[in-house]
Design a protein around this nucleic acid. Structure first.
Length: 820
DNA sequence: ATAGGGTTAG
């Protein structure tokens, strides 16, 4: 039967039968053992059918009958090695490969390369490097086909050291002119994060094909160097290298991230003109780009046109809905997807949907989706649970967030960062700092986003020492190259009254974005430095930075705090005429505030009447505040009626109205306001002040006696009070309830939280140090007056930051110039 | 190709 092997169709069962007999049975006289040619034929056949089983049987046979001459043996072993490789069994292949006699093996360059390639593809990757080293040791010269594979193994292992050594070998062998080898080196450096080395290889390449360009672009894009990626993409086109669909798929995420709609559209049209096949991958990346550019309609169109969709496509589409604030549509799509696809949704898609719920700000839907993650078992995915955590914080339910946080078994840096930010977002800045301490105890390493949570906490508490430490740590970790970190630093230093340091950080930034300028302008604004804010706004335009809505809120409020009425009016007009930004409620608020503070009450009222949309109670409140400052009771009452008809938004309205009546000594009306406030269930938020002493933040509420040195603080205040009276201080009765005796009123005022904090600061800090106190409400009028006196008595600078601005008291004068 | 924590104003 072995006489005509060619004619026999050798399928795997046939091989099995034949070889089993040859291995296990005693050789029978009438059955001749297969000869070398038969084996070659057999292996060839196994190759066709990728029969691992056949390969193994041949292997066994060869071990058993280790006969024949070396050359023929080698030939067989060579073939068998290749067979195993084609069956994705590099280790078996290696076994056979090693059994080829060394002398023979040394001549088999190609087989070495194929072995290395097999390990580079299927692993273990270390073996590819071992084989390469062995090859070099035996004096087998590596070729241009060796390097792409051994380098792939290096990048899989993130083994930079070996890769760099191999780079030297490449140079020595003069292979650094080969496009394939260079592209492989480039790819290796990119994947190991060595971008400078990658760029060097790229720049030195004598010629570059589209693959090399793609590798370099993806390197920049993977490492968030989006402008470099875009720059290279245009350079590639200038040099007339045609992008292919991989190029497009690489560059589109960068375009999306930067919301470069015009460029995105151009790339989309290139795809259509060149007739690129819009498959799932390309289609999804185009869809995603449109979503990130806020073009939901385009994204929907691409989504609808895609014949084949996978989970990534659905995920990108739902993500587009979330970005474009169409959360309901996103949730509907999610439902539809769950019906169409049998398998449960991936963590990525679940996280996207939860982010949508967070944006909806609907706690009930949030709880529902939390239940779903439990049902699907996705709560055990850390990424998903971190998203749930942040969703609770964003929906304002810090209790749920804390409870859920406790339930996470292994918390990572993201969990802690989300918790820290969540605390600050909900007004629990001290708790945010405590959470950071917990994180340190748990030995979880802080990341950039942790600092992004800590810095606003320091800003909130005016905790300069904490803030400066956070700055220092960020420098050490290299975070300060990040624009957002610098923006947060500018805000922190501004709110800790260190405008010069804020400006230094701002000046030193190599790249600024619109937030950087806004933060700096706002910083000048809260210090009443309106001129500086205006100058910086001019500089911003000279630098070519386009302002946004927030810029004008910052600029207008800066004008308001400094009484720059004509500048404010000018910019309000200009924002729509020159900058194409439609004024929103916030901008109208700033203008009413500006006119009102300046005493132009009728103009402010007129301004509200001429608004193109309905003013809310918050806006009327700005006018009410102005009525109180300028003691215009008639208008105040009219405005107050308006607020009542709209339904008051906060207790602030009641406080203002109440204070207005008491200033006018209309006690009965004032009392009615209190009763109504109580009936409607608006509680006055407790005022709280903070002061940082020696790196520790101390909190005070009005009348607080819980502080360890409370007695000393109260004694100090009484002492100051006597001095103040000598200098002519009289308490204003309008700031306290009218139903208490005159002396008690003084007592209540005496123990307002900001006074307690200032007194504590005076006792605890060296006499040359200025005192900085921050408060969660507006500073009270009596405190404002008192602090002027106190600044004279103690001969030091006292700063109080309230919710709207800074008050720097020095030599009896406040920097606010009564504009507050 | 999709994906968790984040900056500015009020």
């Amino acid at each position: 039967m072995w006489k005509h092997p060619v004619k026999i169709k050798l399928d795997s069962s046939c091989i099995t039968q034949l070889l089993k007999r040859s291995i296990t049975d005693k050789p029978q006289l009438n059955v001749r053992l297969p000869n070398i040619n038969n084996f070659l034929e057999l292996i060839e056949s196994c190759f066709q059918s990728k029969s691992l089983k056949g390969g193994k049987l041949i292997h066994q046979h060869l071990i058993k009958f280790n006969g024949g001459d070396f050359t023929t043996q080698s030939l067989l072993l060579d073939k068998l090695t290749r067979l195993y490789i084609s069956c994705k069994k590099p280790q078996l292949a290696h076994c056979v490969f090693n059994s080829i006699p060394l002398l023979e093996r040394k001549n088999k360059n190609i087989l070495w390369n194929q072995m290395i390639r097999a390990y580079a593809w299927y692993g273990p990757f270390e073996k590819a490097i071992d084989l390469y080293n062995e090859m070099v040791e035996y004096g087998v010269t590596p070729t241009k086909y060796t390097y792409p594979f051994v380098l792939k193994a290096c990048s899989a292992l993130q083994d930079v050291e070996t890769g760099v050594t191999i780079h030297w070998h490449v140079k020595r062998l003069n292979l650094d002119h080969d496009v394939y080898v260079c592209t492989a080196l480039l790819d290796f450096y990119v994947k190991c994060g060595c971008l400078e080395e990658a760029k060097e290889v790229f720049d030195k390449m004598p010629e570059r094909d589209v693959v090399a360009w793609n590798a370099m672009i993806s390197g920049f894009s993977l490492h968030e160097l989006s402008s470099e990626a875009i720059g290279l993409f245009s350079e590639m086109q200038e040099r007339r290298v045609d992008p292919n669909s991989s190029t497009v798929v690489t560059i589109l995420p960068v375009i999306g991230e930067r919301s470069m709609l015009k460029e995105g559209k151009a790339i989309h049209s290139v795809c259509l003109m060149r007739g690129f096949n819009i498959d799932v991958v390309l289609g999804t990346s185009i869809l995603d780009m449109y979503g990130k550019c806020g073009q939901l309609a385009y994204a929907r169109k691409i989504f609808g046109d895609l014949a084949l969709k996978n989970e990534v496509t659905w995920s990108a589409m739902i993500g587009a809905c979330v970005i474009c604030n169409s959360m309901r549509e996103g949730l509907e799509l999610f439902g539809k997807m769950r019906k169409e696809a049998r398998e449960s949704p991936s963590p990525v898609i679940i996280a996207t949907v939860i982010r949508g719920c967070a944006k909806l700000n609907d706690l009930n839907i949030g709880i529902q989706i939390h239940c779903l993650t439990v049902k699907l078992g996705s709560v055990f995915d850390l990424m998903v649970s971190n998203t749930v955590l942040s969703m609770y914080a964003k929906c304002g339910s810090i209790d749920n967030a804390v409870r859920f946080f406790e339930e996470i078994h292994v918390k990572d840096s993201v969990s802690y960062s989300a918790m820290i930010s969540g605390c600050v977002q909900n007004g629990y800045a001290e708790e945010a700092l405590q959470m950071f301490r917990k994180m340190q105890i748990s030995k979880v390493e802080p990341e950039l986003a942790t600092m992004m949570g800590l810095l606003p906490a320091c800003s909130y508490l005016a905790a300069l020492q904490h803030g400066a430490c956070t700055h220092g740590y960020s420098v050490v970790r290299g975070f300060t190259t990040d624009i957002s970190i610098c923006n947060a630093l500018i805000d922190m230093y501004s709110k800790c009254s260190k405008m010069n340091v804020a400006r230094l950080v701002f000046n030193k930034m190599s790249r600024k974005d619109v937030v950087s300028w806004n933060a700096m302008i706002a910083g000048y604004g809260i210090h009443g430095l309106g001129k500086e804010a205006n100058l910086l706004f001019q500089e911003m335009q000279n630098a070519g930075q386009k302002p946004d809505e927030v810029t004008f809120v910052a600029l207008l409020s800066a004008c308001s705090h400094s009484g720059l009425v004509s500048e404010g009016r000018h910019w309000f007009q200009a924002m729509s005429r020159e900058f194409n930004i439609v004024p929103k409620m916030d901008h109208y608020f700033c203008m009413v505030d500006l006119l009102g503070r300046a005493g132009l009450l009728d103009k402010a009222h007129d301004f509200i009447r001429k608004m193109p949309f309905e003013p809310d109670s918050h806006l009327w409140n700005a006018l009410l505040a102005a009525c109180r400052i300028h003691k215009n009771i008639e208008l105040g009452e009219e405005v107050s009626d308006k607020i009542q008809s709209l339904g008051p938004a906060s207790s602030g309205n009641f406080v203002l109205l109440f204070n207005m009546y008491t200033t006018a000594q209309r006690w009965d009306d004032a009392a009615l306001v209190r009763i109504k406030q109580k009936d409607l269930g608006f509680k006055k938020r407790p005022g709280c002040s903070w002061v940082e002493v020696n790196g520790k933040v101390h909190a005070f509420v009005g009348g607080d006696r819980s502080h360890p040195i409370s007695d000393k603080i109260n004694n100090k205040l009484e002492e100051l009070f006597k001095e103040m009276k000598k200098l002519g201080y009289k308490s204003e009765p309008g700031f306290v309830y009218q139903d208490v005796e005159e002396e008690e009123k003084e007592d209540i005022l005496l123990y307002h939280s900001e006074k307690l904090a200032v007194a504590f600061g005076i006792i605890s800090c060296k006499s040359n140090k200025p005192i900085l106190v921050t408060k969660n409400l507006r500073v009270c009028g009596d405190c404002h007056t008192s602090l002027k006196y106190i600044s004279v008595i103690v001969k030091r600078e006292i700063s109080v930051r309230d919710t709207t601005r800074f008050h720097h008291f020095k030599d009896g004068i406040c920097s606010c110039g009564e504009f507050w």
